[in-house]
Design a protein around this nucleic acid. Sequence first.
DNA 1: CTGTTAGCGCCTTCAC
DNA 2: GTGAAGGCGCTAACAG
Lengths: 349, 349
Amino acid sequence: MSKVKLKDVAEKAGVSKSTVSQYLNKRYEFMGKETRKRIEKVIEDLRYQPNEVARSLKIKKTNTIGVIVANILHPFSTYVSRGVEDYCQQRGYNVILCNADNDSNKEKSYIEMLQMKQVDGIIIAATGKNNDLIYREREKGFPIVLFDRYFDDVEVDMVLSDNYQGAFQAVEHLIKMGHKNIALVAPEGHLLSMRKLRIDGYYGALKKYNIPIDESYVKFVTTENLTNQLNDLFRQDHVPTAVFTVNDLMTIEVLTYLKENNIKVPDEMAVVVFDDLPMASLLEAPLTVVAQPTYEIGTTSARMLIERIESKVKPKHEQKILPCQLIVRQSCGFRKNAEANENIPALNA
Amino acid sequence: MSKVKLKDVAEKAGVSKSTVSQYLNKRYEFMGKETRKRIEKVIEDLRYQPNEVARSLKIKKTNTIGVIVANILHPFSTYVSRGVEDYCQQRGYNVILCNADNDSNKEKSYIEMLQMKQVDGIIIAATGKNNDLIYREREKGFPIVLFDRYFDDVEVDMVLSDNYQGAFQAVEHLIKMGHKNIALVAPEGHLLSMRKLRIDGYYGALKKYNIPIDESYVKFVTTENLTNQLNDLFRQDHVPTAVFTVNDLMTIEVLTYLKENNIKVPDEMAVVVFDDLPMASLLEAPLTVVAQPTYEIGTTSARMLIERIESKVKPKHEQKILPCQLIVRQSCGFRKNAEANENIPALNA
DNA sequence: CTGTTAGCGCCTTCAC
DNA sequence: GTGAAGGCGCTAACAG
């Protein structure tokens, strides 16, 4: 297992270590064609592979970045990761991927671990509980890019998708399909900023079309006792005709509920959801979804981070907001139902 | 950005570098309670973080492993990765994750890159085209574990799922549901060993129950011109009453076809598929699937790799075959009887 | 119990 | 063009 090292190559090629080093770093001007060929051959013969650890120690750069996602099992994280990886790969960087599981302690220890490993920068879907740490490191000049969640207490590069616009479009689409009684299902608890924007988008769309807001249609649910909470929503006197779910966990719960209670989508209930799902098109009623530009979030984050690392001239911190895309399938009902709202003035605005 | 280093800690604490080093490596026996406290405090004050790169260079160990998967977008890879990560995390190892995309060149360059980075070992879903390289490295003592694909030309640790048993059970289940005309849909082309086992499982089950084999039910399809090929299968004189698909790509194609042609599952066509799908339970007819123990494949691979790294006494190479699980839902025409869940971290929002 | 010393494998002036 | 020397930050004998 004894590794062949630069010194071995130098000896076998009959040159000095520094010449070999020059060769490795492609500074070919500093040597004769002769020596260059010879070194090349020896490296081949010996199957020499430079030790990146030693190199990193010396040049103080690892060409490695860290990515901290919420959960790699979640398609959102997966697509972002893939975007990051593809971009990095192409730029000569490697990626260490970590799952923080929305646990701020794990997040913190991962950040520290990555820094001890001397990564050149970190891309992170932050929990928000370590913003002080993140901000401090950023201030010291350590490259960090946040994605997916917005925080206003921290001046750091961020890559986000346009949650308001996405939610707005989704609900607007339902309205154009003729729906007025539109429910919103969101998880209860502290509102992450992005989730709040989705809810704002819901209200915004209703407002634009002068649809009065019925708070009995707005449900913040907990995972325990979910059935009762959805019963409240779907079995009240005037049931909604459509429902908008703000994330895929909610989507799965609502779809399961509708299926169990034999409520037909879209005939009895139109559904539009935030976040695309892998199988969305194969469901009983293929889902109309607001798809986030996940892969682009990844590539964009990677690009911004690498720009920082390679210290391009840049503003102190920048924020990139990428648009969501409404993918219309069948779960929101068909066009024929749309006439009802065709005369609403605001529709033409 | 100037990092605080061990030397700074030593000076500030009024001890020598080696004492601090001892402290870092928890060799507390070699110092007074006094000095220990003092060092602790200085580290705290200075926010000192050891440089792992320097440490790795010295001790010739990075506590990092590489994982090469086919495609992180695929749930199979994702769950395996998560298994690997969780196990490694808990054992103090970090993971560099790479996508080879079934491209042997990418695979090769990733293997080399990971070795230059001095990873302690590699877990890989090999393409098979670099078996010589893999075998050679393994022979030199470099820890490598293969998963997902079996190769008989290489003596390396492997972690596999029992593809034969899984397929056999799936088809046996269909038979027990009363089906005799059971189709098989598999991708055409070179048979990876594991896929062959799935096909063998199909034949094996038919044989056990003395069901004559009708080769017109066995379709090897290409992705182009798929519709015609499925037409051949589903529109012949005596159509099958059930179909078994050998991987999830096939599953999606077949389900899409059935949906488009308005063939009802399970009433007109029973379906059992290899590989669980995230939304399998929410489909029009929740799918009966053969689920591979993906998460366990990950943890097991990681465990075996780390055992090699830490050179436990072990046989030259070992092979672990984990059982698949048949999850009965409704697509095969029967009420669910058993539905166990893997013990894996929940999909959080 | 603590300090001194000599590297780990590579890079980089700076002489030759 | 090429080589010698010093050092990146840390560890691990080995003295003291």
